[in-house]
């Protein structure tokens, strides 16, 4: 199945399952991923798929807190969990930061980068999810799991 362009999906077809705003503090991320995990469990999402979504969301939340908000708890990160009529899940994470260009990130599997201590988050998200879009100049990520 070829994915539809994200922007072409009518927003009215999406059901809001969870919407959380939280201060940009890494210690707050666990509660958000726990809440998402609970909703996914209620939806009977299989464990493997649930783990993949949870890890991708955790990476996106860390990026939003650390890079989007410079870990300033006076700033807020928003996380939304939605589903479409086919039961596909989309998670949207947004921050008030300046955004970034994900195409400029280094390949973490390049031999020069394999032993790096960082730089794998966005790559992991792309591997774990079925469709990933950056919007609003890079400070909003929309991640789909079919």
């Amino acid at each position: 199945m070829s994915p539809e362009p994200d922007a072409d999906r009518p927003q009215k077809e999406l059901s809001e399952l969870l919407k959380l705003d939280f201060p940009a503090d890494t210690e707050a991320i666990g509660a958000v991923t726990d809440a998402i995990s609970e909703v996914l469990a209620q939806l009977s999402v299989p464990e493997q798929k649930r783990l993949e979504i949870e890890l991708a969301v955790q990476e996106a939340l860390v990026n939003a807190v650390v890079h989007g908000c410079q870990s300033n708890p006076m700033k807020q990160v928003r996380c939304r969990l939605q589903s479409d009529p086919q039961g596909r899940i989309v998670v949207i994470v947004s921050d008030p930061g300046p955004g970034f260009n994900p195409e400029l990130l280094a390949d973490p599997k390049h031999p020069e980068n394999v032993l790096a201590g960082h730089g794998r988050g966005v790559y992991l998200i792309r591997q774990l999810m079925d469709e990933v879009h950056y919007e609003k100049g890079g400070n909003e990520i929309r991640m789909w799991k079919y």
């Binding site: 783990l51 890890l55 955790q58 990476e59 860390v62 394999v114 032993l115 790096a116 201590g117 988050g121």
Partner: peptide, 17 residues
């Protein structure tokens, strides 16, 4: 440890190096 995120992976490879 049910899952390892990118910060954990970074720690493991730096420790290895």
């Amino acid at each position: 440890v049910p899952m390892i995120d990118s910060s954990g992976i970074g720690l493991l490879v730096r420790c290895l190096a």
